[in-house]
């Protein structure tokens, strides 16, 4: 009896409240929406518009010339080369780390997760500096490397190492929460039925994590291609040789070649927009 009356009271009071008291007055809603839109417009839309307008300010010819001159082309090539090497390595690492952390129980798991996230708390400049301390001329392995005529700093291996350092967490961070919610039952069933380890991974695990994996890979790629601070420290800024696209933009900008700087910047902005679009497609896919 008593329970029923409580429920009745709740129902009637809910009807009384309706929707009006659960929403803010329309004026408040208008103000909050306007504040948000203005903030996003000023901080996100305007910078993006500025990039494209400045890039095309001197016309299409200058734009095309800026992105096809030899130094720009070699910067684009180097950036793609670094991404082609660094992204698969950190993807492989992300899968291995997520597999160990989510499919098994062991002590020190939290420590390991913290360790994977560590690069997020390290300034990109420091990420570059530590490799100079290791492999630079005065570094720990400096003499050894010069004896064998191997160059890491101010050349491609250094750029790759710095890029790997800053993007270590990207794939692992996407996969760990995803694989945690999926548990181990499906894989255990597959193994019990006699499937091999590789088959189980490819046929059972991979289909379950493919969208999360793709998202992690795309974020990792965007950061590798766009990394500035860490790469700036180890690259040595040799034009046409060790300048990636972001470093090339800096050089052009400091030489007051604004149109050319923004032309290359517009290419990188397209990459960013592409990354965001893929992210939204993946989110839409996983909701389905």
């Amino acid at each position: 009896m008593e329970k029923l009356t409580i429920e009745q009271t709740v129902v009637t009071s809910k009807q009384k409240i309706g929707n009006t008291t659960l929403k803010e007055p329309w004026l408040i809603r208008l103000i909050l929406t306007t504040i948000s839109l203005l903030f996003l417009l000023i901080f996100l839309v305007l910078p993006l518009v500025t990039i494209f307008i400045t890039a095309f300010k001197k016309g299409l010819d200058v734009y095309i010339a800026s992105i096809t001159e030899p130094d720009a082309l070699s910067a684009i090539k180097l950036t793609l080369l670094v991404a082609v090497i660094a992204v698969p390595i950190n993807t492989l690492f992300g899968i291995a780390a997520a597999w160990a952390i989510t499919k098994f129980n062991f002590r020190g798991k939290n420590l390991l997760t913290t360790l994977i996230d560590l690069p997020f708390a390290v300034s990109p400049v420091i990420a570059g500096l530590v490799f100079i301390l290791l492999f630079g001329a005065e570094g720990l392995f400096g003499d050894l490397l010069s004896n064998y005529n191997v160059q890491i700093i101010f050349s491609l291996p250094g750029i790759i190492l710095a890029s790997l350092f800053v993007t270590v967490p990207f794939v692992a961070r996407e996969l760990i929460p995803l694989m945690q919610t999926q548990g181990t039952q499906e894989e255990e069933a597959s193994i019990s039925l006699g499937a091999g380890a590789l088959t189980t991974f490819l046929k059972v695990t991979l289909p379950n994590i493919k969208w999360g994996l793709l998202y992690g890979v795309i974020l990792c790629n965007a950061r590798v291609m766009g990394e500035f601070g860490a790469v700036s420290v180890v690259s040595g800024h040799i034009r046409g040789l060790t300048n990636t696209m972001p470093l090339h933009i800096e050089v052009l900008y400091n030489e007051y070649q604004f149109s050319a700087a923004f032309a290359v910047a517009s290419l990188m902005s397209l990459l960013a927009l592409f990354t965001i679009i893929i992210k939204n497609i993946i989110e839409w896919r996983t909701k389905q």
């Binding site: 996003l40 996100l44 305007l46 910078p47 993006l48 965007a222 500035f228 972001p246 910047a265 960013a272």
Partner: peptide, 24 residues
């Protein structure tokens, strides 16, 4: 569109953001 754009600072290279904000 706005929701998607919130991720822009994650995806846009910092040097590009730097020169765009400076120009503005």
């Amino acid at each position: 569109l706005m929701d998607g754009l919130v991720d822009l600072p994650f995806a846009l290279p910092t040097a590009v953001a730097g020169i765009a904000l400076t120009a503005l």
